[in-house]
Design a protein around this nucleic acid. Structure first.
Lengths: 173, 173
DNA sequence: TGCTAATGAGATGTAAAAAG
DNA sequence: CTTTTTACATCTCATTAGCA
């Protein structure tokens, strides 16, 4: 992804920081799932011509909330990723509970990590498991999902591709 | 030089407050007499006493607020630095609590200290204990971070460079 | 004044959002 | 879902400015 430094971002006005959570105690931190429900739903002010009276009222809306994933959480995530890079919803939720993040955050992380892996910025597992290195050798025959162990692959096939698997005569242990 | 943040280059106006950091107040868990002078030096004498109405009145437009780090704080900082010159966010916060400064101040101190060390200006501090920074023998193979003990280096690698470490076959104990 | 805390620009990594 | 883009957090490096 060749970034173009030359391009002028016509407007990249970023002010203020809004430090995200302090990501409290490592591990098992019961993160306040603040939730981003706020979601700049409004923001339709494009109408312009606003009554300019509520001028100073501004800071308070829309702030993209960036979660900071701690190294401890990352280690768990990568470990699970190495077992199944395409977890089902249920598994996703289980992982989310384990690491103390919302399902959505974990889901996005998996999406981004898969994308990163495809792009070659590969990272497969945490350093703790230095021997499990590598690549996910098992690819689902019906989609692009990758797995480290056959049991995970089978579980995936069972939950996502049972029909095709049966037609194809895939042998599920 | 740019004395005026006003300069507009049509693009990329980043104010990057950074120091806003309003909520990260020390919370001040009492830790024995640790006092710090993070705020206005002009405290004693003088009329002052400030009306205090405006809480936000603190930030004077043109006054850069310089924190004075006490020798006691420095001693702790250097000690932690000697163990890990590139602490993760969580560790940084822990240090900040220990020493009674904001995370941001501690972060800047580490940045400046790393830069100082890179430039070869290690400096020993404290009457009783002098930390010879220059003698940090362990350098992270993946970045310029320095460590005194291997366990600290390993922790650093685990949290920051696990992928590279794995690829490189680095042996983490 | 010297040392150094603070600031700001530029670079990098990546979580979240947007586009497809 | 994937691919692409945006925005934010942090780091380095170069500077600026506060205080003993």
């Amino acid at each position: 992804n060749p970034t173009h430094p030359m391009i002028s971002h016509l407007n990249n006005i970023q002010m203020k920081s809004t430090f995200s959570d302090p990501s409290i105690s490592p591990l098992n931190n019961s993160l306040t799932t603040l939730k981003q429900s706020t979601k700049h739903a409004s923001e339709n002010s494009s109408e312009g011509q606003r009554g300019n009276r509520e001028i100073e009222d501004e800071h308070r809306r829309d702030k993209r909330q960036r979660t900071t994933i701690t190294p401890e959480q990352l280690e768990v995530l990568y470990q699970r990723y190495s077992l199944d890079s395409n977890p089902t919803r249920g598994v996703l939720e289980s992982i989310a509970r384990d690491v103390g993040l919302t399902r959505r955050v974990v889901q996005v992380w998996f999406q981004n990590t898969r994308a990163r892996e495809r792009k070659g910025q590969f990272r497969s597992v945490g350093p703790g498991t230095s021997f499990t290195l590598g690549l996910n050798h098992l690819r689902c025959p019906f989609c692009r999902a990758l797995f480290k162990v056959k049991s995970a692959l089978d579980a995936h096939i069972r939950s996502r591709h049972w029909a095709e698997a049966e037609r194809a005569g895939y042998n599920l242990s």
